[in-house]
Simulated assay, not measured.
Amino acid sequence: MNAQTGSHSHASASKRLNRLAWLLDSAIRLPGGFRVGLDGIIGLVPGIGDLVGAAMSSYIVVEAARLKAPFRVLARMGLNVLIELVVGIVPIFGDIFDFAFKANLRNMRILNEYLNKNA
Rank of each mutant, 00 (worst) to 15 (best):
N80K: 03
F93P: 10
V36Y: 07
G33S: 05
V36M: 13
M56W: 13
G37A: 05
E63V: 09
V73I: 13
R76E: 04
F93N: 00
V52F: 15
G43E: 08
L82G: 03
G47W: 08
I96Q: 01
L74K: 10
D95E: 08
A69W: 14
I41A: 02
V45R: 01
A65I: 04
K68D: 05
L79H: 10
I60K: 05
P31R: 08
F93M: 09
I42S: 06
R66Y: 12
L82E: 02
G88R: 06
I60E: 00
D95C: 05
Y59M: 07
L44K: 04
V61G: 03
L74M: 09
I89D: 03
G47A: 05
K68P: 02
I28T: 03
G43V: 07
V73P: 07
G53D: 01
I92L: 15
I92S: 15
G37I: 02
I42C: 02
V73A: 07
G49F: 11
G78H: 05
V45D: 01
A54I: 01
I60S: 01
A65Q: 09
P31V: 02
E84H: 09
P70C: 06
Y59W: 13
V62A: 14
G43P: 10
L38I: 11
E84L: 03
D95N: 12
V87I: 14
A27R: 12
A64I: 01
L85N: 09
F97N: 00
R29N: 08
M56C: 14
L44C: 11
I60G: 01
S57K: 13
V36A: 10
V86A: 14
L85Y: 12
F93T: 06
A75K: 13
I92Q: 14
R35G: 07
Y59A: 04
R76A: 06
P31S: 05
I60D: 03
L82R: 00
S57L: 13
L79Y: 12
G32W: 09
V90P: 02
L67Y: 11
I83E: 06
P31M: 03
S58R: 06
V86Y: 10
S58F: 15
I83L: 13
G33H: 10
M77P: 02
A64S: 07
V81Y: 04
L51M: 14
V73S: 09
I28G: 01
G33D: 06
L38N: 03
I89S: 06
A69S: 13
A27S: 15
I96K: 00
G88Q: 04
I89K: 13
G40V: 03
I42F: 08
V45K: 02
S57A: 10
V86I: 14
